[in-house]
Design a protein around this nucleic acid. Structure first.
Length: 270
DNA sequence: ATGGTCGTCCCACGA
């Protein structure tokens, strides 16, 4: 089973790219971030025509996440618990019935998350919100891990985990994406028992998922790696591969992020 | 240090 995550930076502006990529990549489940539309504005027909079910958690103008799936959804949960005042659409969880590598039926949980950017770090309503959101995510994840089910926590984390995850880490020392607090919170989340997919298959530097539109960042390969798929032990056991689909950044009218995909030894019930 | 580019929506704002 192929599961991918992609910050699409506006699904209405990117629908042609999305359709072309779905046809090429053939993922079973897709986590989208920054759809930048209310639920009613999602271009459903183009995606449904390719055989996908669609669940969205949209918002006007900004943010917004979605999950596309060839499998039917057993359950959908919108929003990250822990703050009733938080009305930003950054989290959606889908539950699916699957068969694991040993032929046992199990639930597969897949989350599409869009972690707050957090800039500027001088503003509590930005950087404080990011860190509080990460603390909520850690509490939620600890609870979910107790289920001992395959769980994929995928999305735009807006965190550069290590220096080698940026072409020029010096450029990011005052940025929320590379603050010690952000990186520590990401490490705390990992240390609950998650495996970070890309780093479990390669040590090589210069694996990036985002290149800014400005200042020729793509042409100079001035990128950062901020889109991650975290796997519970039960999902990690089934990991066969992980790739960054870098070529999508060179397409016409690209998103500033590219898809990241994993291959799990998990199948659909017959 | 500054300016550089997008998407959404209607005027800046967020990234």
């Amino acid at each position: 089973m192929k599961i991918a995550t992609w910050n699409i930076n506006g699904v209405k502006a990117r629908i042609e790219n999305l359709v072309a990529w779905l046809k090429e990549s053939q993922p079973d489940i897709v986590c989208l971030q920054e759809i930048k539309t209310v639920d009613e504005g999602f271009p459903r027909a183009d995606v449904e025509a390719l055989g996908y079910n669609i669940e969205t958690h949209g918002q006007k103008g900004f943010n917004g996440v979605a999950i596309l799936s060839k499998l039917p959804f057993d359950e959908v949960i919108r929003g990250l618990p822990g703050d009733d005042e938080d009305d930003q659409a950054r989290f959606i969880e889908g539950v699916f019935s699957v068969v694991d590598a040993k032929g046992r039926k199990t639930a597969l949980r897949v989350v599409s998350l869009y972690l707050p950017n957090g800039n500027p770090i001088s503003e509590d309503r930005k950087f404080g919100y990011k860190l509080r959101w990460m603390a909520r995510l850690e509490r939620w994840a600890a609870e979910r891990l107790r289920l001992e089910e395959p769980l994929v926590l995928a999305g735009d984390y807006n965190v550069i985990p290590e220096k080698e995850d940026a072409r020029r880490w010096q450029d990011w020392v005052n940025d929320a994406l590379f603050q010690p607090e952000s990186r520590q919170a990401f490490r705390r989340l990992l240390s609950l028992g998650f495996t970070e997919s890309i780093r479990s298959v390669t040590d090589s530097p210069e694996v990036y998922t985002f290149w800014d539109y400005q200042a020729g960042a793509w042409q100079k390969n001035n990128g950062i790696r901020i889109d991650h798929l975290l796997l519970s032990p039960e999902a990690s056991n089934t990991l066969r591969g992980a790739v960054v689909e870098k070529h999508v950044r060179s397409w016409e009218k690209p998103s500033d992020h590219v898809p990241v995909a994993i291959d799990l030894e998990i199948t659909v019930p017959v």
